[in-house]
């Protein structure tokens, strides 16, 4: 099982994403934005960071990178694609996911260990969760406010396409507390919080059991591996 992680100029978290994939039991494959080649991977992660310095709009320039032609084609043929933070912004800019992300309503960059509720366990990246599981993974963004038209929000809710919802605190003004969504097919998922930073004891969020022991993010990656093995 080979999962590609695409590095764009200004990506920050591609190494953490590769590490998460390795810990989950698959082989990470480093991909470069300037190529038209996915190197035969089985799934894709678009990592967090500040591609192109967030110039124009967060994720906008990356969404028209050479490799995005292949990403869009692979996503449309069912390949599991996960966009984390800046990767989520790219997926909306590439129209693989609806809505958009705007500057946090309070105007500040925020970093916190964030509680989320899992509301869809049928996507390629969430099958390993139980419905309504409450998880904690790190969040860190300046432009994480999810917005969409009222009609689009109603459609997302009606079709069960809200995968992760903020619990307790809405950290960025996202409409309806939406933290992550999926496409109609369930193979493409984007979320603002960072599951790749909560995959190994000693390096994750604090839990009631022990400091930094949280590994809730790992399930996104093991879910994708299971989804691919089931095909």
């Amino acid at each position: 099982m080979r999962i590609g992680v695409i590095t764009f100029p200004g990506s920050l978290d591609e190494r953490d994403a590769q590490r998460a994939i390795r810990i989950a039991g698959a082989e990470p494959v480093a991909l470069w934005h300037g190529e038209h080649d996915l190197h035969g991977v089985d799934a894709l992660v678009l990592p967090g960071g500040f591609s192109y310095g967030d110039y124009l709009r967060a994720g906008a320039i990356a969404s028209v990178s050479p490799i995005m032609a292949e990403v869009i084609s692979a996503a449309n043929s069912g390949m599991p694609v996960l966009g984390i933070c800046n990767g989520f912004q790219m997926l909306t800019e590439a129209h693989l996911l609806p809505g958009g992300l705007i500057r946090n309503d309070h105007g500040h960059f925020i970093r916190r260990d964030q509680a989320l509720r899992v509301e869809n366990t049928d996507t390629a990246w969430s099958t390993g969760f139980e419905l309504n599981d409450e998880i904690v993974i790190p969040l860190k963004n300046g432009e994480g406010g999810f917005i969409a038209s009222e009609d689009e929000l109603d459609r997302l809710e009606g079709e069960g396409r809200v995968v992760f919802r903020y619990l307790g605190v809405n950290p960025n003004g996202s409409l309806r507390d939406i933290a992550g969504i999926t496409n109609e097919r369930g193979n493409v998922v984007g979320l603002m919080p960072h599951p790749e930073h909560a995959v190994e004891p000693g390096f994750g969020p604090d839990t009631s059991a022990a400091m930094r022991s949280g590994t809730d993010g790992l399930t996104l990656f093991t879910s994708a591996i299971q989804a691919l093995q089931a095909v």
Binding site: L56, R57, A60, T92, P98, G100, I102, I147, A148, S149
Partner: peptide
């Protein structure tokens, strides 16, 4: 298509 994003602008 590029200079603006019709969802937000």
């Amino acid at each position: 298509e590029i200079l603006s994003n019709s969802v937000i602008e």
